[in-house]
Computed example of a mutant assay.
Amino acid sequence: MRHKSEAQSLLKKFFSFVQTQFESHIKNFRSDNGGEFISLRSFFQDRGVVFQHSCVYTPQQNGVVERKHRHILQVARALQFHAHLRTQFWGECALTAVHIINRLPSPVLSFKTPFELLYSKPPSFSHLRVFGCLAYATNS
């Protein structure tokens, strides 16, 4: 997403994706009172989604999201630091951090992984490689 104006169409696509791929419905949507979501009230009402929003300028009301965001950033920073990567690879660090976190067991989820709860099977680890290692392209 490059602009906030894209949020509405992307959110509608995400709702369809969840319904089609996981045969599930989103029940609650929590926002930080951003204007891009306020205009979606009728969309939420039509689908029976509870729309919750926090008070303006109170990030402490979004505690769960803020903690998860901090967790992702800390893992991404650790990957970047350990691999001695430049800032231009920050996006790859963040994506890799989320990928790893989704495959780690959590005590909050009864020591299951988010992947396992979503797909009803344990994740495979065979595709994982050392992050930030030196690699060469070949034409073999």
Rank of each mutant, 00 (worst) to 15 (best):
G35F: 03
F131S: 06
L134P: 00
R30T: 02
F14C: 10
V108W: 08
S16P: 00
K12R: 13
F125Q: 07
P105T: 07
H3A: 13
K4W: 02
V18C: 14
I72D: 00
L109I: 02
K13E: 08
K27P: 00
S24F: 08
H99R: 15
S110I: 01
Q60K: 07
A78R: 07
R67V: 05
H25N: 12
Q19P: 02
F37V: 03
R77P: 02
V98C: 13
L79Q: 05
F15R: 01
F111D: 14
F125N: 06
C93M: 05
Q8R: 15
S31L: 04
I26D: 01
D32P: 06
K13C: 04
D32V: 08
A78W: 07
M1A: 08
Y119E: 06
L11F: 09
T20H: 13
A135G: 04
A97I: 03
A135E: 15
F17R: 14
R67T: 03
E116R: 07
A7W: 02
A78S: 12
V65Q: 15
R30W: 04
V18K: 13
S39Y: 02
K121I: 12
R86N: 14
P123S: 09
A97L: 04
V50N: 12
G34F: 01
F37K: 06
G132P: 00
F89L: 15
R77N: 11
F22P: 01
D32G: 11
R2D: 08
F22E: 05
S5Y: 03
A97R: 02
M1V: 10
P114K: 10
Q88S: 14
V108P: 00
F125T: 10
H53V: 00
P59R: 03
Y136G: 13
F14G: 06
Y57W: 13
N28S: 05
K27G: 03
L10H: 15
V108D: 11
F15H: 12
Q74G: 02
